[in-house]
Amino acid sequence: MNTNDLLNTVRDFVDTNRRERITKHESLKRLMKKLKIKQNLLKEQVKNENNKKLRKRLEEKIRVIKAQRKKGLKLLKELKSEM
């Protein structure tokens, strides 16, 4: 570990706000990943669904997840810039 990395680790540990932001960033990233998986799963389901009504519902779900992901990615960006 070089000096810079070591300093960063020490700073992460001492600065509570920064530590909080990191935790927030990590859990948000985890959530985004989960949502992405769900979105892909729903896309697969849409492809295989013959019932028009059910397909429409699945598409609606995808639209909502997209909006949530859009919001989440924006937040991730903001957190990253603050770190």
Binding site: K24, S27, L28, Q68, K71
Partner: peptide, 24 residues
Amino acid sequence: QDDEKAENSVALDEDEINEVVDEY
């Protein structure tokens, strides 16, 4: 608690819900 905070921050508010509905 961390997951809870993350979920709450991504959950859509009323305006965002309306945006999705308008799009539809």
